[in-house]
Amino acid sequence: MEFLQPTTWEEAVETKAAHPDAVPIAGGTDVMVAVNFGRLRPARLLDLTRVPDLQQWDTEDGVVRLGAGVPYARVIGELGDRLPGLAMAARTIGSPQIRNRGTVGGNLATASPAGDAHPALLAADAEVEVASVRGTRRIPVADFYTGVKRSALADDELVAAVRITPPSGPQQYSKIGTRNAMVIAVAAFGLALHPDRRAVGTGIGSAAPTPRRAPAAEEFLAGELDGLWDSRAELPPATAARFGELVAGAAAPIDDVRGTARYRVHALSVMARRTLTWAWAEYRKGETRCA
């Protein structure tokens, strides 16, 4: 096995162009599991941990540009206030050791339907910045996932960063696992309220071939909130319940070793209802920072 270790972003992109079969590795929390189980025997590994650009985040025109190699522990520690939904998702991931290694860029490149970051990125309308020697492009995250562990990433492309607009309203994230830590999602849900745009963002994980939004639920809730954004009045329980049902209706889960399809649908309706209740309560308190 060839171990390629670029030290600059340009070199990384060139290496990937020269060796499209090279498997990128950052934290290794997906790649090394596959290697250790004998499921992956890549001819080449492309180590991205020595590329300084990938380890950075900054803010451009109010948008956070999160380098693909920033580990979850830093998302929690450094971006908890700017990216609350993603930080909540990051807290549910693995153990401290895993959070020190695993990256949002890796989660995107693997594109597992169970990836914990995806529902938060979907709810927040994130964009994925990908690059190759041909240039850089931005892909709305909802268009990034194309199938089970498949993405819009071309063979010669690498994930450079993810771009997320800090929220104008509350965000929530909730995940089901059959133990209380270090567990792969049985189902997950991300929610973002966007009072500035009078819009609602959602993201569903582990309940369809790809992470996906729940458009009908978003439209329904945006309509219901139309008169409530300014009054900050109480949300009728029936609205939260209906929102939950619509989120559940957007899922297309299967039975597998981690849970049944029926349970996933049920759990999504409960998570969507509860997260909406929490988010709206937060919004009513008016504690939300404006972006």
């Binding site: 807290r91 994230y173 089901i176 696992g177 133990r179 209380n180 509860r274 309560a281």
Partner: peptide, 21 residues
């Protein structure tokens, strides 16, 4: 509720309940 420590809740840090249910 708002004072819940997720580590004390069913579901743990996965943030599935603040006491509901």
């Amino acid at each position: 509720g708002a004072d819940a420590d997720l580590r004390d809740m069913p579901g743990g840090v996965s943030n599935t309940t603040h006491g509901e249910g």
